[in-house]
Amino acid sequence: MENKQHFKLAVIPGDGIGKEVINEGIRVLEFLSTQSNSKFTFETDYFPWGCEYYLENGKMMADDGLEKIEDHDAIYFGAVGFPGVPDHISLWGLRIAICQNFDQWANIRPVEFLPGVKSKLNHPEKEKLNWVLIRENTEGEYSGIGGRNFTGRGARKEVAVQSSLFTEEGCERVIRYAFETALKRDRKKVTSVTKSNAQQYGMVLWDEVFARVSKEYPDVETDQWLVDAMAANFVLRPEELEVVVASNLLADILSDLGSALAGSLGIAASANLNPDRRFPSMFEAVHGSAPDIAGEGIANPIGAIGSAALMLEHLGLKEEAVLVNQAIKDATQSGFLTADIGGNTSTKEMTDSILQQLSNIYEKA
């Protein structure tokens, strides 16, 4: 009997260009399903949460939002943020609420230099650069612990306290994930990034856990850097990077730097994983909602489509994930580039070109 797979996706387009690029990713998923003769299919449940929802309801998602999406196989997320809603409200009310409550503790952000895309990095062998940043995704600097007080003392007397939380369990599981990721790569290397000279408690704990776990992986090369030196290395010694693991804030910043060096945040994909699979994982492009270009049809869908590829891999459709990533490379190499990467291809045309490259791959198979 033919084995068929049916995947139920919770789709949260969010705000701005999130609504545009998420639809392009769905087009790619539906194309792949058709090519498989429906051996695998996708059911999409859309949820209208985001800043518009907040302005109407005073909250970023429904009160029972987590329960509504908990039984899905994966979450496909667009972007969040729009003028009129403070960024800390939009972020904590939706994306971080999902990441923390579903214990999506490993954030995966590949950095790849696509052919045909003019990068900001002057390196003789850019096409060989291929990094992956692994970000601790539920604690660290984004733990949300702290508060504001003393407003009663008068003007300019208020105090704000923001605490970072580092647990040994949280450090170990993401560091171990980085080592397991390195074992699957040609060059087996993990770089740990902290600021432990200044953050003498939480990040020293991280360093100690990294040292302990590394002993269990004698075949994996390791090094450790402070984040300021690491930022310089992204530019000066990019050939030394393979798997980079860091805390919530530091990896967030470094991954944006990496994607900018590769040409644009518009090409950057990411996955918020619950590797234990107790909850659904969430897949989203790294870029924001870009309200300045929303509705113009020029947003780059590559980040969202690349995130769909990460979702396919997570769902066990590894061959299809490889095909999507290859089609993206073939499309950019053929000169299909959106405005953010130096071209004039529209959002829809960019996806059309990727679908055409997928068609070409299937015809040759």
Rank of each mutant, 00 (worst) to 15 (best):
E139A: 07
P110N: 07
G116D: 05
E125K: 15
F113N: 04
E127C: 07
E141V: 11
I145N: 14
P115N: 11
V111E: 10
N149D: 15
G116P: 05
E136M: 04
K126Y: 02
K118H: 14
I145P: 11
K128D: 08
F113E: 02
L129C: 06
N137C: 07
G146L: 08
V117S: 03
S143P: 11
Y142T: 00
V132Y: 00
Y142I: 06
G116Q: 10
I134A: 03
R148Y: 12
L114Y: 11
G140Y: 05
V117R: 12
K128L: 06
S119N: 11
L121A: 06
K126H: 09
K120Y: 12
L114T: 03
G140W: 00
G140V: 06
G140M: 03
K118F: 11
E125Q: 15
E141N: 05
H123Q: 00
G144P: 11
P115K: 13
P124T: 06
R135D: 06
P110K: 03
V132G: 06
N122S: 15
V132T: 01
I145W: 14
E136H: 06
V111N: 09
T138Y: 08
V132I: 11
G144W: 09
N137F: 13
R135H: 11
R135V: 02
E136D: 04
L129D: 05
K118Q: 12
I134N: 00
K120M: 14
N149R: 12
P110M: 07
L121W: 08
I145E: 14
V111M: 09
T138I: 06
P110H: 06
S119V: 09
L133G: 08
V117E: 02
N130L: 07
K128Q: 11
L121H: 06
V132A: 00
E127T: 10
P115W: 15
E127P: 05
P115Q: 12
E127S: 13
V132D: 02
P124A: 09
H123F: 10
E136I: 02
